[in-house]
Measured scan of single mutants.
Amino acid sequence: MISLIAALAVDRVIGMENAMPWNLPADLAWFKRNTLNKPVIMGRHTWESIGRPLPGRKNIILSSQPGTDDRVTWVKSVDEAIAACGDVPEIMVIGGGRVYEQFLPKAQKLYLTHIDAEVEGDTHFPDYEPDDWESVFSEFHDADAQNSHSYCFEILERR
């Protein structure tokens, strides 16, 4: 099963200049909980913004210009990325925008964090048809001392 995991502000903004323009430790914990011990696929820009392999996960970098870091697996196509994951129950696609666009048609599940923030962004989550998805989990949280904005975790499964 292919799943996408993303944090989205208003207007589906997911990033600005290779960074997330908010401070939500709870979302980072949600991300870790849902990706640990699963292969993660990301684009080169996302890889560069993280700066290191995510521990406890097979890191697969999709790029037309593969790098030389041998701590991760470099691939040039969506099919190659899927094959590099091996026989696993769930593959997690973690961004960025172009990689989400490439995998959305193949995805069966979306793990979304909806952030109540209007922020400037240069990267967006692809538009998706809500009628194609069923919400199977939703959990709202107010902003607090650690988390700069209110947010809602949601899991959607393709109908």
Rank of each mutant, 00 (worst) to 15 (best):
P89G: 07
G51F: 07
A26N: 03
V136I: 10
F140T: 13
I91H: 02
S150L: 04
V78I: 07
P55F: 14
M42H: 01
A143N: 07
P126Y: 04
E80M: 08
S138R: 14
T73Q: 15
P53L: 15
I60Y: 15
D122F: 00
I61C: 11
L28C: 02
E48A: 14
P66F: 15
V119L: 10
I91R: 04
A143M: 07
I82P: 00
M20W: 00
R159A: 11
H124P: 06
V119D: 05
Q146S: 08
P126C: 13
S138K: 12
V99G: 01
M16K: 02
P130R: 12
R159V: 08
N18E: 07
L36H: 12
I94A: 04
A143H: 06
S148L: 01
E134Y: 11
D69A: 11
E139S: 07
D11P: 06
S138F: 04
D79V: 11
A7N: 03
P25K: 04
K38T: 11
Q102Y: 12
A145M: 08
Y151V: 11
I41S: 02
F31T: 01
F137W: 07
P53F: 13
A84W: 05
G121T: 00
D127Y: 14
A26K: 01
T73F: 10
D122V: 00
E17W: 01
G56E: 08
T46G: 02
P21W: 00
D79F: 08
N59P: 12
Y151P: 01
P55H: 14
V13A: 05
L156G: 00
A117T: 05
N37E: 14
A26G: 03
E120R: 14
G43K: 03
D11I: 01
V88G: 10
P39W: 06
P66W: 12
D142R: 08
M16V: 15
H114C: 11
A81S: 03
A6S: 15
N18W: 05
K38W: 04
L24K: 01
E154I: 11
N59Y: 02
S138Y: 06
N59G: 08
P105N: 09
L8V: 04
D69S: 13
F153E: 02
Q108S: 10
W30D: 03
D144Q: 05
D70S: 14
S148F: 01
S64T: 12
P66M: 11
N37G: 08
P25W: 06
L24T: 12
A143I: 07
R52T: 14
G67N: 13
L4I: 15
